[in-house]
Design a protein around this nucleic acid. Structure first.
Length: 448
DNA sequence: CGCACTATAGATAGGAGAGA
DNA sequence: TCTCTCCTATCTATAGTGCG
């Protein structure tokens, strides 16, 4: 684009002249050029703003640069004075142009430099807590449960419990929120882990994993790359402060079955009683059973359809052995849930631990958790010499080993054969009168 | 193939609160 | 009063993955 030069004769710029100078009505802009310094001028616009500009040619093309507002810049300063002025600036720009340097490029370069300095300053000081919110929204594949756990790890102090009014304890990660990313090194991690592991080892372990994920993410971001000492997370001196996960082994052994069944069958809460027995007799996960609906059970074909979770997946089909079949059939139909509760907001059983403990106590047994019932199923199944793969499939474990990973799911009939045996074994050990071994359901092959 | 490790999902424990 | 829910803190289990 060609720059139109002013037709007006150059005048000696003075402060009064600049003040009087105005953009004529109807014109977009007006120029007043200095006679003393070549290229220096004042540009007025209809709105009344006036700025010193510099206009010249560099490498054959026009070049106009805004020096600044006339109110901000002085026209001239006495010789030898260090202060900046419009005339000085224009002379400087002219020398650049004479050298073939485009002042606009120089300006852009300076601007970029300033931005880089700003980023550098940010990098110097940005803290874990400042970046954490960005990290939290960075991965849309995280499930709600994961996000909840991460939020809890990052929980700030000052909140009150919804029940009881006590203060909530801050998350294990929160202690690091003030730490600049640059200072998140092995020593810092060690110090933090030592403190947190002493109070709540498992929570600290979880928080450490979240932090590690966060650190990898920081490495992937352009503006935070290279700030975290990512190797520190793998160092032995750090990792030795991460507590090992403990493994639970509590389980009902065969010789405990009689006492446990006797106690649990006396439980006045028939729903809780049936729920706990179902857990033992299917080896399923607590929540899988708790969310069972009547339409998931076929008494005709004797199977239970265990739905994966609310998301999708069609889950798995497990057999419904005779005793369990009769037990579930006897339950009252209160709502859509097999293990219904009138009090629960979800409409289904929430927590059967109290009944479990009661039974354990009544039976004089050692402590067994509800998840222990799931463990018990596979231990008890071993007594029937049921193939491990069958037990895993009934329980919904992942397939193990190459032969099973590419496996063809066993037909429900085969599972039923074993499942009936397992149930029979458990009930015999428990000394329970068993229902007539009625007609087995016709072969229903389900390719799940 | 087996193991170790990470990421994700879910369970246990304790206790306050509320309804029958 | 009893029994169950449900909130919170804490811990464990399982799937997925990479490596020797």
């Amino acid at each position: 684009m060609e720059v139109v030069m002013s037709t007006k004769a150059n005048v000696n710029l003075t402060i009064p002249r600049i003040e009087k100078f105005k953009c004529e009505p109807g014109k977009a802009q007006a120029f007043l050029w200095d006679a003393e310094v070549k290229g220096l001028g004042v540009r007025a616009t209809p709105s009344g703003s006036k700025a010193f500009i510099f206009q010249s040619r560099v490498n054959g093309s026009c070049c106009r640069v805004v020096i600044g507002d006339v109110k901000a810049w002085r026209l001239d300063v006495p010789a030898g004075c260090g202060e900046p002025s419009a005339r000085k600036e224009a002379r400087r720009l002219q020398t650049l142009c004479d050298q073939g340097i485009d002042p606009r490029e120089q300006k852009a370069a300076k601007k970029q430099e300033a931005e880089q300095r700003k980023i550098a300053a940010m990098r110097e000081s940005v803290t874990v807590g400042e970046l954490w919110p960005r990290y939290m929204v960075s991965n849309p594949t995280w499930r709600p449960r994961t996000i909840e756990a991460m939020e809890k790890a990052a929980l700030a102090p000052g909140l009150t419990r919804q029940r009881g009014g006590k203060p909530r304890t801050p998350g294990a990660l929160y202690a690091l929120f003030d730490v600049p990313l640059r200072e998140l090194d092995a020593a810092k991690l060690e110090e933090w882990l030592q403190q947190e592991s002493a109070i709540r080892p498992a929570a600290a372990r979880l928080a450490f994993r979240f932090l590690r994920g966060f650190a990898s993410w920081c490495e992937e971001q352009d503006d935070t790359k290279g700030l975290v000492d990512i190797l520190a997370f793998g160092m032995n001196r750090v990792r030795k402060h991460v507590a090992k996960a403990k493994v639970r082994h509590d389980c009902l052994q065969r010789e405990m079955l009689a006492a446990w069944f006797k106690a649990i069958r006396q439980c006045p809460n028939v729903t809780a009683s049936a729920f706990l027995q179902t857990l033992l007799l299917t080896g399923a996960r607590k929540e899988e059973i708790a969310r069972l609906r009547w339409e998931h059970i076929s008494f005709e074909w004797r199977y239970i359809h265990i739905v994966q979770d609310k998301t999708s997946e069609d889950g798995r089909f497990v057999p419904l052995p005779p005793y369990l079949c009769a037990l579930l059939q006897s339950l009252p139909r209160i709502n859509g849930f097999v293990f219904a509760s009138k009090q629960s907001s979800t409409g289904r059983i929430r927590d059967a631990r109290a009944r479990m403990q009661e039974a354990i106590q009544m039976a004089g047994l050692p402590h067994v958790t509800i998840h222990g019932l799931r463990r018990s199923f596979s231990v008890l199944a071993d007594w029937t010499e049921c193939p491990a793969g069958v037990t895993r499939q009934i329980q919904g474990h992942a397939a193990v080993g190459a032969s099973e990973i590419n496996y063809k799911p066993r037909p429900l009939d085969m599972l039923r054969l074993w499942h009936d045996r397992i149930e029979k074994f458990i009930l015999t050990e428990a000394g329970i009168q068993q229902p007539e071994a009625g007609t087995a359901a016709p072969g229903l092959r389900v390719v799940a």
